[in-house]
Nucleic acid binder design. Sequence first.
DNA 1: GTGGTCTAGACCACG
DNA 2: GTGGTCTAGACCACT
Lengths: 129, 129, 129, 129
Amino acid sequence: MFLAIDFQSDIPIYIQLKQQIIAGIARGELKEGEELPSVRQLAQDIGINLHTVNKAYNLLKDDGFILMDRRKGALINSLENMADEDFKFRLREEINPLIAQAFCKGMTEEELLLEIGEIYRSYSQGVKR
Amino acid sequence: MFLAIDFQSDIPIYIQLKQQIIAGIARGELKEGEELPSVRQLAQDIGINLHTVNKAYNLLKDDGFILMDRRKGALINSLENMADEDFKFRLREEINPLIAQAFCKGMTEEELLLEIGEIYRSYSQGVKR
Amino acid sequence: MFLAIDFQSDIPIYIQLKQQIIAGIARGELKEGEELPSVRQLAQDIGINLHTVNKAYNLLKDDGFILMDRRKGALINSLENMADEDFKFRLREEINPLIAQAFCKGMTEEELLLEIGEIYRSYSQGVKR
Amino acid sequence: MFLAIDFQSDIPIYIQLKQQIIAGIARGELKEGEELPSVRQLAQDIGINLHTVNKAYNLLKDDGFILMDRRKGALINSLENMADEDFKFRLREEINPLIAQAFCKGMTEEELLLEIGEIYRSYSQGVKR
DNA sequence: GTGGTCTAGACCACG
DNA sequence: GTGGTCTAGACCACT
């Protein structure tokens, strides 16, 4: 799997890393049960510190995307039925300001939903459900 | 207008302030040409630092949501046709990871668009277009 | 408040720190809304690294014992009605092996409950409820 | 006897193993003089490293729960009157932070003792004393 | 001033 | 070999 980290971005590296791995799962490139590289390995590959990778892995673990197995390291978790109310609430909280902005800038509902549907399908096409 | 700042949030106060003001515009509570409180006034009302309010105002100015007038202070700008390609690009960049996450957690496209449409209409209802 | 860290203990420093602060709250020495020292300050006082203090604070935040206020730093949170089912489940998980051990070693239920009641009251005496 | 090891737990496998065996003794499933599986056998059954089982057995031996016999392997020891002052001291040390936490979260003494009594009796019912 | 991020290097516990 | 802990020192964002 290819991880593109932008060192000039104002988004922290460990957040980018987390997002890229989630995107990898969404695209179906990382499948349930698959092992992620060790923190040391990945840190070396990307050219960053192992603590930064570690932080990303821990966030992914806390959010249920991966499991930390004592024998095998980090494993992709099952991605079924995890959209509980708590997740949806946080999603709304995060997405809300973006929608307010889009509305102010004059985007219509149709335009917005079209954009989002496109992004969604860029993921759903790669994965059988 | 009511500004709800969460001092425990991991979102910086000046960003929250910016988002809340945009939401106010989106809800139609702040109309074109209307004056925002002075930096000093707002800082005192909320109980935060001058610089923090200043930063938020400057961001809003940079994004075209307000105009800074030497005599009248900050004025709400017109909200027409500002969704240029650059804005849409940044919107996609920001919304993309959220959608990947929603997809991984098992949300269907319908569910997602329904949620977003609801949020959108919570704004569009208050404003005549 | 006095924090006694045992550097020889096999319990990690940040865990000891977390436990000591919880004990401080339980004894009523740290009251709701009170400010904790900054990570740098406390780290210097105890003679440890600020990252170690930071880790303890973050755990306390995750467990709801403190709030991280953007203006005031770390604040003791309200300690009302936080014993939800999730907490009780984790408590049982952690306490279970200790009880199994006590049972195997021949402690009677009375003996055990007496010990625990004593510890509990060592906390409840200092706080009005 | 059924040993449920959680490879995702933050508790080391050898500690889990120790706890599970003690729980087995407490439930009366493992009786005095009974033989435990050989280190090799158990390691293979659970799918873990030899060293890990070895470590657990050695801890159990140190704590007096089993005897290591050169010919018969590991034998369950008698569980009489082993709750010396040293054990009680360590028990208090370990259980204290949990109680402080429960107190902070608002559990009453009655609630706590009820929970603990329940766990205790889940063991004492299976064993004649 | 604060906490957050990132780096670097060390040691240890675990498997 | 792995991840977990701790240290040390740096820079930056925030208030």
